[in-house]
């Protein structure tokens, strides 16, 4: 989804915030290429947490449709960057 490879440090920071936002019950390995559909807690509650995180940490409004079009965790960061104009 992203035309350019994301900055690894930015992706690491995003993944860390993503994990907090989803609030996993048990630790799960997550990386930029982790598929959202493979995560046990990728549900409507997780979506709300991620939208709040994108808003408060990145100042970007991500919609439910944006998330539906994302396949991996990294796709969400790409969407954030695209909406931010960078």
């Amino acid at each position: 989804m992203s035309p350019a490879a994301p900055d690894p440090a930015a992706l690491d920071a995003f993944v860390e915030q993503f994990v907090v936002a989803v609030d996993f019950q048990n630790p799960v390995p997550v990386a930029g290429d982790t598929r959202l559909a493979d995560l046990p807690e990728w549900d409507s509650l997780a979506a709300l947490g991620v939208i709040v995180m994108c808003d408060t940490e990145y100042g970007v409004t991500i919609t439910g449709n944006d998330l539906k079009n994302c396949v991996t965790v990294g796709d969400i960061l790409a969407r954030v960057h695209a909406k931010k104009g960078g």
Binding site: D43, S44, L48, T61, T63, G64
Partner: peptide
């Protein structure tokens, strides 16, 4: 429904992400 919850068409439909964005924006 998509979250595995049992629903009827007569139940309230709430688009959580839309309501969240509306409220916080």
């Amino acid at each position: 429904d998509a979250d595995g919850e049992t629903r009827r068409d007569t139940d309230l439909v709430l688009d959580g992400t839309a309501v969240l964005n509306f409220s916080t924006q």
